[in-house]
Simulated assay, not measured.
Amino acid sequence: MKKLTLKDMTESEQREVKTELDKARKNLGRELTNAENNKTKDEVVARIMAAREKIEKATRAERKANRVKPSGETFSWSASISTRPPR
């Protein structure tokens, strides 16, 4: 899976990234350097990607479980037709 960009994320995911950047800035008590900014952003993006991958994996497993399994039986037309002549 390719790395997510902020444009690819939902609004709530973008908000989560910005919140984490604000928390890091507040903890340091100063503005973040570019390296610190990028490192924090990469960590949050990696966490979001892992969460998305987990959801996609569960969805794939559920779809696979719900897939119609072919049976060995074939439809028998003679079983569905009455053998009595019409009156």
Rank of each mutant, 00 (worst) to 15 (best):
Val17Asp: 07
Ala35Phe: 11
Ser12Val: 07
Lys39Val: 08
Lys54Gln: 10
Ala24Leu: 12
Glu53Lys: 11
Lys41Val: 02
Gly29Glu: 03
Glu11Met: 03
Glu20Tyr: 09
Met9Asp: 05
Lys2Asp: 11
Lys7Phe: 09
Ser12Gln: 10
Ile55Leu: 09
Gln14Glu: 09
Lys57Thr: 15
Lys3Gly: 07
Met1Cys: 08
Ala58Asn: 10
Glu16Cys: 09
Arg52Val: 00
Glu56Ala: 14
Asn38Gly: 03
Asn37Ser: 10
Lys7Ser: 13
Thr10Tyr: 08
Arg30Asp: 01
Thr10Met: 09
Glu43Trp: 12
Lys3Arg: 15
Ala50His: 08
Met1Trp: 07
Lys2Gln: 10
Thr40Asn: 09
Thr33Ser: 15
Thr33Glu: 06
Lys41Arg: 15
Leu32Ile: 05
Glu43Leu: 15
Leu28Asp: 09
Lys57Val: 10
Val17Trp: 13
Glu11Leu: 08
Leu6His: 04
Lys26Met: 09
Asn34Gln: 13
Glu36Leu: 09
Lys57Glu: 15
Lys26Phe: 10
Thr10Trp: 05
Lys23Ile: 15
Lys39His: 14
Ala35Trp: 08
Thr19Gly: 01
Lys41Leu: 08
Glu11Gly: 01
Glu31Thr: 13
Val17Ala: 09
Glu13Met: 04
Lys41Asp: 03
Ala58Asp: 12
Glu20Lys: 12
Arg30Ser: 09
Gly29Phe: 05
Asp8Cys: 05
Ala50Phe: 06
Thr19Gln: 10
Ala46Trp: 01
Glu43Gln: 15
Lys18Trp: 11
Met9Trp: 05
Thr5Arg: 04
Glu20Trp: 08
Leu21Met: 02
Thr19Arg: 11
Leu4Arg: 11
Lys23His: 13
Leu21Asn: 01
Glu53Gln: 09
Ser12Tyr: 06
Leu4Thr: 07
Val44Tyr: 05
Asn38Val: 07
